[in-house]
Design a binder for these strands. Structure first.
Length: 458
RNA sequence: GGCCCCGUCGUCUAGUGGUCCAGGACAUUUGGUUCUCAUCCAAAAGAUCGCGGGUUCGACUCCCGCCGGGGUCACCA
């Protein structure tokens, strides 16, 4: 392998769905690697057995594939525990005085809450346990965990390739972080460092929320004698109502957006531009175009707001790029009524520019299958309908003839053309908003159109 | 509260000391096309570049302070 090859990874924990922020991290990591003809790796971080969600991994693989984020290598952390790789690293730190056994009880939720109010303690009670005390506890059968032994009075720093700046910490404010849990599983802090090194990751790209734990990782790298990779922290996508985008505040699951009728390419394009921008202000990017144009200097530093309006716009753009056939296939899961393909293929061109999501097709075109209830008609519109009925009964059933005769009739009687057609539209489509009238009537057929008119005249 | 990050139109952003009385996109408004609604096209409005000090001949761009927003502080990731 070329030593200069870029290797990035996307390291999600399998929660059962993919967060839009996660998707964005994945695309960025993918583009960073692929722009440099490197490798993109997916690593499932599932070392917390209590949070195991059945089937979550497979769902994650599927959704990544639908976005075209194909990985070169795949790892599952829990499957690596057995090899002893994490335990070995923890032991090494222990032996060299950079970690210690901890016999404390895990904090309860209330204690964590209480701690957060005024945290002043960074050193663990077991930090300075003597060898004898440790031996005694071990002999008594106590199951220890292993924590990082953080020194005081030192400084640790790194240069962030997203923020493009150096950040440093005094080790006095760095926690004695948990590395190996008493169940033998590593925590994130140990596992990332060991895995990123083991997998020869050159660039670590992750959410901004990881920035505060970076000094811990830096110390682990240092004590393990590993070279520190490039590290970059992405912005956090904010909810329009303020704060982090979260499940409680609205949709965050990529799967949900797809179920709501958004196209993967629209979601991807939208998400790419939330936190990254090209120099030329270009808006439209497919995955391969993004890979081609990718530039790490385009990363933003401030948190963007999740703007659904723009997502809708992208979706409309991509929807209109689809052929009628492609749209037909995409629409299928969103159709409630059974309809044959030839009919749908007639309707799709009429609806294409009128929908922003796939889900909007059905309500807009429902009247083709479902005769709308008779509308409340006032006397003047009844007059219009009666006139239209007479014309449509004898007109040649084609677009030109229908339009010409209808317009001529309205004109000759001095009627308002908009009102005339609106009356007709309401009777036929049951709504003031509909696809073009003449084309719709042609699809419905003469017989059906006439009976809908009659129904409204009763 | 401690630590850390960030701060250009409502939103996403271009801008790396002079070419910026700040450019593009979404949204908004108006006009055109049109039987409705959209699409499409055209135009308008919208930012004293968070505030206050410096540095400099000159600052949105560099430095400091303040304010504001965000993140984080578990044997979760």
């Amino acid at each position: 392998m070329d030593p200069a090859t870029i290797r990035t990874r996307f390291a999600p924990s399998p929660t059962g769905y993919l967060h839009v922020g996660g998707l964005r991290t994945a695309v960025y990591a993918y583009a960073l690697a692929k722009h440099g003809r490197g490798q993109f790796i997916v690593r499932i971080e599932d070392t917390d057995q209590k949070r195991e969600v059945p089937g979550a991994k497979d769902k994650l693989y599927d959704i990544l594939k639908t976005f075209g984020l194909n990985w070169d290598e795949l790892y599952v952390q829990s499957e690596r525990v057995g090899s002893g790789i994490y335990e070995k690293a923890a032991k090494k730190l222990l032996d060299e005085g950079h970690a210690f056994y901890c016999f404390c009880k895990p904090l309860t939720k209330d204690e964590i809450k209480e701690n957060r109010k005024s945290k002043i303690q960074f050193r663990d009670p077991c930090h300075n346990l003597s060898k004898e005390q440790v031996e005694k506890k071990l002999a008594a059968g106590e199951k220890p965990a292993i924590r990082l032994k953080v020194p005081d009075g030192e400084f640790i720093s790194y240069i962030d390739f997203v923020l493009r700046k150096k950040t440093s910490w005094k080790t006095d404010v760095v926690d004695d972080a948990m590395l190996l849990k008493s169940d033998g599983f590593p925590t994130y802090h140990l596992a990332v460092v060991v895995d990123d090194h083991d997998m020869k990751i050159t660039h670590v790209l992750r959410g901004h929320d990881w920035l505060p734990s970076t000094p811990i990782h830096l110390l682990v790298y240092q004590y393990l004698g590993f070279e520190v990779p490039q590290i970059g922290h992405l912005t956090d996508i904010q909810d329009p109502s303020g704060g982090k985008l979260s499940k409680r505040k609205g949709n965050v699951a990529v799967e949900q957006f797809i179920a709501n009728g958004f196209l993967p390419e629209a979601i991807l394009n939208f998400v790419i531009l939330l936190g990254w921008a090209p120099k030329d202000n270009r808006e439209m990017f497919t995955l391969s175009e993004f890979v081609e144009h990718f530039d790490a200097n385009g990363f933003q530093k401030s948190n963007p707001l999740f703007n659904t309006q723009k997502l809708l716009w992208f979706n409309g753009q991509y929807l209109r790029q689809k052929s009628d056939r492609e749209l037909l296939e995409l629409l299928r899961p969103h159709l409630k009524t059974k309809a044959d393909d030839p009919l749908l293929l007639q309707i799709i061109p009429l609806a294409k520019s009128r929908i922003a999501t796939l889900a909007e097709f059905e309500p807009l075109t429902r009247f083709f299958w479902q005769r709308p209830a008779p509308q409340e008609q006032i006397s003047t519109t009844k007059e219009y309908l009666a006139d239209a009925l007479a014309i449509l009964s004898k007109v040649g059933w084609n677009k030109e003839a229908i339009e010409a005769d209808l317009v001529n009739s309205a004109n000759s009687k001095g009627w308002n053309r908009g009102g005339y057609f609106m009356a007709l539209r309401l009777a036929i489509a049951g709504s003031r908003i509909s696809p073009p009238l003449t084309e719709s009537m042609l699809i419905l057929g003469k017989e059906e159109v006439i009976s809908r008119l009659k129904q409204n005249l009763e």
